[in-house]
Design a protein around this nucleic acid. Sequence first.
DNA 1: TTGTACGCGTTATCAG
DNA 2: CTGATAACGCGTACAA
Lengths: 346, 346
Amino acid sequence: MIGMDDGPKAPPTLHDVAREAGVSIATASRALNGSSRNVRSENASRVRAAAAKLDYEPHLSAQAIAKGSTRTVALVVRDVADPYFSSIAAGVTQAAQECRLIVTMAVAGGSPERELEIVRTLRGRRPRVIIVAGSRVDGSGTRGTLVEELTEYRTAGGRVVLISQRDLPFGTVTIDNRGGAERLARALLAAGYRRFAVLHAQERIRTSRERHDGFLAGLRHAGVPEPLAIETGFTRAGGYEAARRLVERGVADVEAVFAVNDVMAIGAMTGLRDAGIVPGRDIGVAGFDDIDAAVDVVPALTTVAVPLREAGLTAMRLALSDEETADHSLPTNVVLRESTPPRPPT
Amino acid sequence: MIGMDDGPKAPPTLHDVAREAGVSIATASRALNGSSRNVRSENASRVRAAAAKLDYEPHLSAQAIAKGSTRTVALVVRDVADPYFSSIAAGVTQAAQECRLIVTMAVAGGSPERELEIVRTLRGRRPRVIIVAGSRVDGSGTRGTLVEELTEYRTAGGRVVLISQRDLPFGTVTIDNRGGAERLARALLAAGYRRFAVLHAQERIRTSRERHDGFLAGLRHAGVPEPLAIETGFTRAGGYEAARRLVERGVADVEAVFAVNDVMAIGAMTGLRDAGIVPGRDIGVAGFDDIDAAVDVVPALTTVAVPLREAGLTAMRLALSDEETADHSLPTNVVLRESTPPRPPT
DNA sequence: TTGTACGCGTTATCAG
DNA sequence: CTGATAACGCGTACAA
């Protein structure tokens, strides 16, 4: 035990494996990761044995640099803790695992600048595909730069897929926000609701805008008053806060609240209740997304189901397919629950 | 436009930047990423200009291989879509971003074999730190191998942090599951509850076992009957299903249900309600974790608050500190809400 | 089938 | 302060 060095011991390299197996590095490489099967089976098994004995793992960075490509998928989301994005992430991760790809996740936090910076540095990792999941906001000035950056990435052989952002020259998985919101509006009209408040986020956030517009479109020609629009954050806290504001203003003239996503709607329900107004009895509430929690709140939340997990899966498939710039649209479904009980005509 | 080649155009390399700036590669390297500032400022700015013009991004794999270390944090979770893990992930991501580290996420899905395989291939990426967030189950046979694998990784200079698993020779962030559950039990006793059912997961899942044990410990010496134990999945669906089973069996003799985590508790509340039993009125319900949704369900869920996001932050800090194997314990707090109203003594 | 030798994009060493 | 040049670990033509 003299002269033992406990400092960091370098992991075994292919070189070590080759030496242990008594073959050249090239043979070892072929035996372990070689595309061509041309290695004598006896040698092959000796190499595998040596690798197992030394607990060898190929250095992925070295492989990446030698082969010129990685097995990585980069996913950009706004917030990991938001069920909307974590469901998408789950889908992407699942699909990636089936293809033996590894997904790395970056959080943009709703800032276009941050998002741009992320995509930029992401390029340095040379991922095989980049998936950007709807943190995009319009008119931010960084949009052109982002498109440029992604285009350049694709020119270098990368795959780009955008979730929930139409009109950009990349593969996109889009969600029928407009149509879903429109059908929701009509369903609520059919249930007897006439006077609405809409809780939405900044106009720059596309998803919010599309759902808002769709809802208004569904109301058009129904002869109902223009809904009250309340702008707030795209989060649970935003919904809560907006509900409080709504109550302060007075809710006598609103029969139902539509929040542009479920976390906002759920926050709003709590906000209303905290102010003494019972959702589903005193006022209808509807959301959008159909996250798991929608059936656990009371009353269960009326919403528009979005196949989030599938959006992630589809995005991966699209990325791996050879269509450069296909647009895959996912349908949405109105789900009526107890938060918007049928309302007797006045 | 003759002879244009639209095939994948290789991204610019340091070589290109150097040529553009009229300096050597070495100088370019130093100007852009060099630790030492010893490069004439005029040359430095020329290099930076060239890099910007060519839209150069350093090839991270190449850097990794040259420097022998990456700027990556690998996070292993059971399920991205579970708020428990996504909150932790949010914390890790935040802390990582502050240190300009990139986090890559792998999903083990509750399988120890899968988890082991993940850690193994993770080593190939040579991350700077590996954080394993409680997907571990005991007595799975893979445990020894996992420890071995992680030890080897650490020997090679990597940092390991485990979240919510004591007794392993690595840095750990542990959560006071036992103590929290014990205090919860006492709080429920104080509120007048005497007869309980516990919804727990398999005994092999440590977190579940600790919370279960702690709860029983809190009940001890109180002269109350042994709680009814119902084993089910560690998920929302598990909670729902267990509640249905409980109802089938008959709930006349149980005054409160303790589920070992919030998603189970929330699922159980819905399950009870679907069976005509109103949580908070007919029966008390309590959970563990205090996820966001706990305040949005009705009645609001009594639970034990766990600083999940902070667990992620702490894990990163621990990883970056130089203590090889510290144990940082996070406190938990009982939060009584409407799902367990005080119960008049019989 | 196997081995030698070179290249991948960077950093680090060591003379100038 | 700068520029050759040798690593880093691996894949792969090319030659044997």
